[in-house]
Design a binder for these strands. Structure first.
Lengths: 116, 116
DNA sequence: CTTAAATAGAACGGGTCCGAAACGATCGCG
DNA sequence: CGCGATCGTTTCGGACCCGTTCTATTTAAG
């Protein structure tokens, strides 16, 4: 367990990682899309549109649109639930797992470089 | 200086804070706007449009538009440089400082709650 | 004084995202 | 079967952001 972060360090960490994301420009994900991506890859499946909408506190169409974009980027995929065909299950992809992994590396690297 | 973060912890931290930002919905800043905000509040003044554009690796109009929006939200303010009247200096505001401070608290809180 | 360079911003066309409302498909239940 | 509830998506009008290009202002150099 890390020790307590000081305010300057916390903000410097957020700044550095955000700057890396902007500069690489590869993803260009909005905050909502980032929240969806990480929720899908960190929390227990299954993930549905409704569940994500509730978790993020946004409307369902917002989730649908986020999934459209992220699907286009290959970060997630959608499949009808065979048990209840009204539901759509969001699944992980190789590209998505790689993107998440890279983000993790970024955070770790910037965290390691924090000044005393 | 904190100890090394593990991948799971790094991603959990990013996820939790992002989710907080989405849920509060107060800011709704894009990644670029967030990068501008933190750069202005963490790095040494003065900050110009051109300097920020170079630092973030984006075009000048993108910075101008980001400043438009953030000015509307009261997070930053713009003033002509008296020395060289071609330049515009970006300055901090009380509201901006408060928003940055709240973000810092958020990161610290989520960091403190990280599981072992 | 004239001219070239530098700076921020405006205009434009194209794209994305927003919430509200409506829609179609599917399920559960009587 | 029939009918209301649930789920995801689509549509709509409006707002915002993108990069490119152009403009206005100001400075610096010859």
């Amino acid at each position: 367990m890390p020790v307590e972060l000081r305010p300057t360090q916390a903000l410097r960490l957020w700044h550095d990682v955000t700057l890396d994301l902007v500069r690489d420009g590869e993803h260009d994900l909005s905050a909502r899309q980032m929240a969806v991506l990480l929720t899908v890859y960190l929390e227990m499946p299954p993930h549905t549109v409704r569940g994500l909408a509730a978790k993020l506190g946004v409307t369902k169409p917002a989730i649908t649109r986020a999934l459209d974009t992220m699907g286009r980027l290959g970060l997630v995929s959608r499949h009808r639930d065979a048990k209840d065909r009204r539901n759509v299950v969001i699944q992980r992809t190789v590209a998505g797992a790689l993107a998440v992994e890279r983000l993790g590396d970024l955070v770790i690297a910037r965290h390691r470089e924090l000044p005393f």
